[in-house]
Design a protein around this nucleic acid. Structure first.
Lengths: 200, 200, 200, 200
DNA sequence: GATGAATGAGGATTCATTCAT
DNA sequence: TATGAATGAATCCTCATTCAT
């Protein structure tokens, strides 16, 4: 009488995957629980067994996405190299994962929208961006300390980098036909590095 | 004898103002027509007299916002000056209007979200950003031709500027307590100009 | 200063004509006053000036139609001839006017439907059919008295004739492509006359 | 363990019965879904679980009625007897079921009305009447072939019989106080048979 | 007489959630 | 655990009617 294996994690992932698909297609508000039920292949009762509500699913997706993104961003922390090299690695990994990031943007839009009204969502997003800044700032500081970069204002520069990162993905969504995202990110980096680096 | 004065434009503005308020507070999907009715001080029938549907109101708001933003952006076209001076004016007018732009962001989030599914919305947004690029590119070209700027790739640089603009406003929404938006925009401009300007 | 000519009858007819068209197309319930306004070329206020309500328009149309039909039926009363000849004239005038009657059937359907619930409508229809019977019965009586027809039961035969009349138009509505209405009415008459006439 | 018994057919019937009642009372357009909900004893959600819309309910009722009527008409096909006998059986079964048919007439009115605008409804009715004609025609042919009937035009006679059938029920609705429906149908039959039968 | 903007009760439909099995 | 039928509050939109001008 071996106990049944715990399938709950598996089920939850199944539901979140289905929900992500459905939310991407319809947006949070227009997505129906029945859509998620259909997409997941489970029953309505099962959905409510694993998640208390539609909101609970949404929040779980938020966690999932930001966990992934944060992990992604943290990769560069591992690198032992010049500040410039770190930024280059950051751009490279972003380019590498852009096709995974892109389909999540519709959901991100909804999160941005929700964050206006839901404090939890707002805080989660803020935490995520803070995380991003917390990572970038030391790199800039390192660059300045080691004489690579000019003595720029650190916080403002970090925000500028975050802004250009999010903004570029946004523009790419509307101009994916005319923007070569790889070139674009490299071009962004050139522009910024040119502004950051000490004149030789 | 005297024909009733035509109040239809007034009424439409009244409705759009109310709708903007309500949409900002609740988001498109969660906003109820009854909310707009209450906020506008008109009746439900009046709303539907001037607008065919909730969607029609949303689209009208989109037009209104983008008309405003486009006009705003075009101000710099008038200036006869160096490319650098034009960019500086752009930053100045943005700073000047930031408090008007900020409360519209929640609505912009919903538009971004909607644009994934509604082609008309998508096209309107794309047109707006294209407009932005069409304005910025000649400035960069002017800067290069007149020897102010390095020979950067024009299109990519324009996108970078658009990205940093939208992205900064986004970050400002989440960090309005720690970001001094005026300084931030100026800092952005410094960074970019430093990257663009010929080394003397 | 001659007084303005009274256009109210003209206006009423204009409205009833428009209403008939609209009711034919949409049915009573689905027809909107705005449709009638548009079709009539008048204003909404004008409509309500001449008719108190949608119902009032409907009732007026009922009167109009039945007046017409009754007049139509009464034509045969004028004829001085054998009973058989009178029935033949009745068939002929029906055939002659069938294209005018046919487009009124959709409205008649609605009147039948309404008559279930509205006593006034019910009575109007009943009166109309009674009228029909009052006309046909003397003809049958005449036929019997003068030895043309067998000694059938008068009332029942009149109802049978009314039934076959209404029923034929009904079938014609669904089979106008395969029924030659002229032949059909003549065939009906033959059948009935064959049943009524004394065997020679 | 035991699976819940499938009550969906039962529920559908429950809803259709309630809807028939409500439609009879108010007509299609004026009947409210809430009326059907109340009459059925179910909830609004349940109604929409089993039927997509008010229209779907209407169509289902159409099917139900015509299935019943068609079955009813087909009874005579079984009989092995003279053409005259078959027509007599038809009249007898009609008389037998008249009290079941009568309350459905208000609904039939609405179907006739709807059929003007809705092709599906039109086709269903047409199919039903065609069915009727397809049944009657062979009987008339049989009568002619076997020398019972005169050599009448078959199709036209079938239409005449259908017409007198529908028309009689119609008149009966308005004159149920003065028409003895049993006598009336027998009288109709006599009249027609007298017209059809060979003179001895 | 005539206009047409404005009213607001009414009604079809949706969908997150529940719960008996 | 899992099912899916059932619930009913919520919400968009319609349209007959009114009335200030």
């Amino acid at each position: 009488m071996s106990p049944r294996p715990d399938v709950s994690e598996q089920r939850k992932d199944q539901i979140l995957a289905a929900a992500t698909k459905v939310f991407t297609k319809h947006g949070f508000s227009n997505a129906r629980m029945d859509d998620i039920v259909a997409e997941s292949g489970l029953s309505k009762g099962a959905l409510y067994w694993y998640f208390d509500s539609k909101d609970a699913i949404i929040v779980s997706i938020l966690d999932q996405i930001f966990d992934y993104e944060t992990a992604h961003v943290h990769e560069i922390l591992e690198i032992e190299d010049s500040a410039q090299a770190k930024l280059e690695v950051f751009v490279d990994t972003t380019i590498r994962d852009i096709e995974k990031i892109k389909p999540l943007m519709p959901i991100l839009f909804d999160f941005w929208s929700l964050s206006v009204r839901k404090k939890t969502i707002n805080q989660a997003i803020k935490r995520y961006y803070q995380n991003f800044l917390d990572l970038i700032e030391p790199i800039i500081e390192q660059g300045i300390e080691q004489g690579e970069f000019r003595a720029v204002e650190v916080k403002g520069t970090a925000v500028a980098l975050g802004a250009i990162y999010e903004g570029t993905i946004l523009f790419y969504l509307y101009f994916s036909d005319t923007i070569d995202i790889e070139k674009q990110f490299k071009s962004n980096l050139d522009l910024v590095l040119e502004g950051l680096l000490q004149n030789p």
